[in-house]
């Protein structure tokens, strides 16, 4: 273990991140992914400065064109002179623990733009389409001064509702003819959408998908804050003119949604939701994780497993015992 860094270095780290230094920020994100205690201490110092960025989550099934949309959104928001951060999540292989993080391939034309910071994250076993470090990484980019932070989920189509806990605006991307609608409804991601995108809308089935979405939205009696999710159709990205036009529409909808959150005071609710998730996670890390670690290392876990298999006790009794013993 390295020694705890000196006080001036800690201050310097914070200053550098606040000044937008990519090297320092990316290293901190790396340490957050590795769950180093120093990184947690750094987050304590960073936290007071968070809360300024508009965080936009982008979810949808694989092949829906999320990365291409993110690339186009970067270009669009850079024209508005906003600093943009991107967190792109790709899955970790459950077999090898490795991952290929390839979302940023589509965004490489922005690699040299100092106003854009793209960071790829692997899920490292986290469920819900995100990485465990995503919430903290959002904070880091926020403190760097990124006004817009785009979070791209893995896109397995499975229960990717986690994104709502980390963003103010959620975009759900659907593609015609992929059976997406049904999948999306099943996975419960329809309810989380603030904006729908029908991507590759030049394909067959685009009108049908639009009609189905409209029918579904028409059944909703009342939208929170009066925000009815718009449905934006985006054409073939190889057709430069029309693509740029529909993209402009999407960028405007993102800004409109944020304004609506502010005007209807719903922004506070969304931020509170994020805070609640964070405190839950932090409590789990601070209380549960050390107990589990100790019980595993001491062999107690192994012993409990044996007792459970022999039906000498049950998990509920064990949990109550541990709580009594540890949480006095």
């Amino acid at each position: 273990m390295t020694q705890k860094p000196e006080e001036p270095e800690e201050r310097e780290q914070l200053q550098k991140i606040r000044a937008g230094d990519v090297r320092t920020a990316s290293r901190l994100i790396r340490n957050l992914e590795d769950e180093s205690p120093e990184a947690r201490n750094a987050m304590k110092r960073i936290f007071p400065y968070t809360g300024r960025a508009h965080v936009v989550g982008i979810t949808g099934s694989p092949g829906a064109g999320k990365s291409t949309l993110v690339d186009a959104l970067i270009a669009s928001f850079r024209k508005q002179r906003k600093g943009v951060g991107v967190l792109a999540v790709d899955p970790t292989s459950p077999f090898t623990g490795g991952a290929i993080l390839g979302d940023r391939i589509r965004m490489q034309r922005h690699a040299e733009d100092p106003g854009v910071f793209v960071r790829s994250l692997a899920t490292r076993g986290a469920l819900g389409g995100l990485s465990k470090a995503v919430g903290d990484a959002v904070h880091v980019m926020d403190v760097m001064g990124k006004e817009l932070i785009l979070v791209e989920t893995v896109g397995t189509g499975q229960q990717e509702v986690e994104i709502i806990n980390h963003s103010h605006t959620v975009i759900v991307v659907l593609v015609p003819g992929m059976g997406d609608e049904i999948q999306a409804i099943k996975a419960g991601i329809m309810e989380i959408a603030d904006i729908f995108v029908i991507n590759k809308a030049d394909r067959d089935g685009s009108h049908q998908l639009l009609n189905e979405l409209m029918a579904m939205l028409n059944m909703v009696p009342e939208f929170p804050g009066g925000w009815r999710p718009p449905v934006i159709r985006i054409g073939n990205c190889f057709d430069p003119g029309p693509f740029a036009e529909s993209l402009g529409e999407l960028a405007a909808a993102i800004n409109d949604h944020y304004r609506s959150l502010v005007e209807t005071d719903l922004l506070g609710d969304r931020m509170k939701r994020k805070t609640m998730v964070e405190i839950h996670e932090a409590l789990r890390d601070a209380i549960l994780a050390p107990i589990l670690k100790e019980m595993t290392e001491s062999g107690e876990m192994e012993e409990i497993a044996g007792r459970l298999l022999r039906k000498e006790t049950d998990p509920y009794t064990i949990a109550e015992e541990v709580a009594r013993r540890r949480l006095k």
Partner: peptide
């Protein structure tokens, strides 16, 4: 016609 960029399939 616009530029095509590597979609980077792997």
């Amino acid at each position: 016609f616009g530029e095509y960029r590597d979609p980077g399939l792997y």
